Amino acid sequence: MNPAAGAIRAGWSRGLIELRQSFTNGADLWAHFFWPALMLAAMWWLRDTAFGTSGLLLGTLALPSILGMNVALGSVSMSQQLTADREDGTLLRAKATPNGMLGYLVGKVVSVSGGLVADLAILVIPGAFIVPGLVLGGLDSWLTVLWVLALGLVATLPAGAVLGSVFTSARSQGLITLPVLGLMAISGIFYPIAALPGWVQVVAQVFPFYWLGLGMRSALLPDGAVAVELGESWRHLETAGVLGVWAVLGLLVAPVVLRRMARRESGSRLAERRERAMQRVM
């Protein structure tokens, strides 16, 4: 068997094992269900609140946006897992194995992507009963969900791999939390972006959060909901274009950054990080 093909196969198996374990571990189960439950509570609270004079309910507008936001948050999950694996020596062991980094990355993509799809299902299935007005029965709707989801994962997971390579400890992951929360706030997740100032709209449209939310809204909302969007259009071409640019940039930059990070990993660096961690605990 080709060594690279063997590494990909091993990575696929590793990813499925990690995904299965995440649904048998108490802490991971809490992570899977807490955020969807929190979002469903928000949807319940917003279910009867109308947006202006549009006749649309904020809960109906927000649920598809939250689905898109969850896809974008896959980059944060990827970053956190890479950083944790650097600290406990998992990456160093992968580096020491022929084609180990390739298998490791395939495994992470499988486990993170699978976890995201499961989280979306946990959110959308009860959400369909809580939030009125969603369009869930058409084939076109689900095809749009699939291409937005697939392109969104390719656009965001490499960015998460880059962040995981840059930040050297789990403690430093907190540095990306505030910017991510800020992007969520201005990306039309809980309130239509058309109601925000023009310069905020420009900033929001640079990042995937807005476009993933827009793509999901185009799939799951009735045609009349387009009236509250910028330009009164779902802008599928622009959605594919911006997410495609992020995907290309990520696929070009992530391998370079990961190779550089892997070359710098060593037993002495791992020992230094563990010693610093112990000093912080003591």
Rank of each mutant, 00 (worst) to 15 (best):
G188E: 02
G133S: 15
T60D: 11
V180I: 11
S22H: 10
E272M: 12
V257K: 06
L56A: 03
L116N: 06
G224Q: 14
P98K: 06
S165P: 03
L92D: 06
V228I: 15
A271P: 09
A72R: 02
L252P: 03
A7C: 10
V200T: 13
A150Q: 06
G103L: 08
G267L: 04
A159C: 03
S218C: 11
G137K: 12
G15F: 11
G244P: 03
V253E: 00
L252F: 06
V228M: 10
T177L: 12
L251I: 11
V180P: 03
L61A: 00
D28V: 05
G133C: 15
P132M: 14
A128P: 11
L258H: 00
M261T: 00
T168E: 12
L178I: 07
G11N: 02
V180E: 10
L178R: 09
Q81S: 02
G224R: 14
L139G: 03
L181F: 07
P64C: 12
R276K: 13
G15Y: 04
M278C: 05
G127V: 04
G107S: 03
V135G: 08
L58A: 12
L212C: 07
R93Q: 03
R217L: 10
P179I: 06
T168R: 14
L163I: 15
W234S: 11
S268M: 05
G115W: 05
L183I: 08
T177Q: 13
N70C: 01
R269L: 03
Y191S: 07
L73H: 14
E238F: 09
A204E: 00
V202W: 07
V242N: 03
V203N: 13
M261K: 01
A10D: 05
T239W: 10
S22K: 08
P197A: 07
Y104D: 01
S187H: 08
L123H: 06
V110I: 08
T177I: 15
L249D: 00
L252M: 12
